Computed example of a mutant assay.
Amino acid sequence: MAHFPYYRPRRMRTNEAMRSLVRENELQVTDLMYPIFVVAGENIKEEISSLPGTYHFSVDRVLEVVQEAWDLGIKGIILFGLPSYKDDFGSSAWDENEPVQTAVRLIKDKFPELVVATDVCLCQYTEHGHCGQLTEDGEVLNDATLSLLEKVAVSHAQAGADIVAPSDMMDGRVLAIRHALDQHYFENVAIMAYSAKYASAYYGPFRAAVSSAPKQGDRKSYQMDPANSLEALRETELDIQEGADIIMVKPALAYLDIVAQMKAQFNRPVAVYNVSGEYAMIKAAAKMGLVDEEKITLETLLSMKRAGAKIIITYHALDVARWLQNK
């Protein structure tokens, strides 16, 4: 009987050129969407203490950072606003003279090919800091909030937004916004739904940046339990049925299993939000000399791409674009 030598599978040991030929995933500048914070006032560019390297811009200076992003090859931004006034209903969120609407008009006039998305929510526009209208007992009124979100989305579309991104997590908000947009002849404005938005501890630096922390209670009644994954799939399926064009997971890093499941199950582009806490931890560790900021950031964002994300919303976008240009 013939004997054949034992074959032991071997790990491929190659140089960088070979590695690049067989690489399964690659992070690209066109994967990135850059969040920009616009505020009321003039001649403002102030670093956000909770998000080092990120700034508040007044509308008259926002084109500076948009030009920088465009020159680096970034094709999409998402705007968050800090209003000039707040009330119990968040009416500044749909005021055409407030920072987001004014900035969208200015940006689209100068950069018509840039994809401009806008955050549709009420938390930073309300006195109480919640994402919807409240009862006297402090409970969020889901259905009453929908009509307010419709106003916000339509005002953004009227200003020129390409994508509206409802982050409030009210039930039925995608359907309500889709109907409102269509009724105002904005059929081509896309909806990027925060389909799986978890009640997360990773949001702290963002809430400080936009002064949106709730004055009482928390958001667990309308944001998802971090323990749940099947719920994320159910919520995403509902958003798609209601008209979502892009589906999102937020936060990103601790929920890559959800990203992978959504990518496998749904025929929609998947976005992730590399949120403020994830960003701030890398910045803090790099400042202390504990990690190589470039290497760990690129590895982190690559993990999101590998899990299935097509769009990565990240405060690292400008730095990542520069690093990728130099590779």
Rank of each mutant, 00 (worst) to 15 (best):
A144H: 06
F266Y: 11
S155Q: 12
A213H: 07
L148K: 10
E235G: 02
E237C: 01
D225S: 11
G73D: 09
V140A: 03
L290Q: 14
A271Y: 04
M262P: 00
D182P: 00
R207D: 08
K283I: 11
V154E: 06
F266T: 01
A40C: 05
M192N: 10
L290H: 10
H156P: 02
G73T: 08
G138W: 06
E231H: 01
P35F: 04
P99N: 03
R105A: 13
R105F: 05
D88M: 13
H3S: 09
A199K: 08
M262Y: 02
K108Y: 08
A69I: 09
V116N: 07
T300V: 09
A199W: 12
D239G: 00
D109F: 13
I282E: 05
M248L: 13
M170Q: 08
L253Q: 13
L238T: 12
A201R: 10
G129W: 02
L114M: 15
E136R: 14
A244S: 03
K197Y: 02
K283Q: 14
Q183W: 02
A17T: 13
I48N: 01
L318V: 13
G172V: 01
C131K: 02
D257W: 05
E64T: 12
I296E: 06
T30H: 08
Q133H: 04
Y255C: 10
L51Y: 07
S195W: 07
K250W: 07
I311P: 01
I177H: 00
I313G: 00
E64A: 04
H56F: 08
A2Y: 09
I78G: 00
Y34P: 00
A213S: 12
E299Y: 08
L134Y: 00
A286K: 05
G73Y: 06
P52G: 01
I77Y: 03
E237N: 06
L79T: 01
S50C: 06
V140Y: 02
L27E: 05
I258A: 01
A286Q: 12
L141M: 11
K86E: 13
G53S: 03
A93E: 11
L175A: 15
A254E: 12
H179W: 06
L302R: 05
K197P: 00
G73L: 14
N43P: 00
V272M: 01
T30Y: 08
P205I: 04
T14K: 03
E127Y: 13
V270P: 04
A180W: 02
L63G: 01
R13C: 06
F37N: 12
E187H: 14
V174E: 02
R61E: 10
I44S: 08
M1E: 05
L146Y: 02
I78M: 13
D88H: 07
M262D: 04
I191R: 08
N97A: 08
A244M: 10
L141A: 03
N274D: 14
H184K: 12
D31M: 15
D87N: 15
N25T: 12
L301Y: 06
I191S: 04
Q158I: 07
N267T: 13
Q101K: 11
Y255T: 05
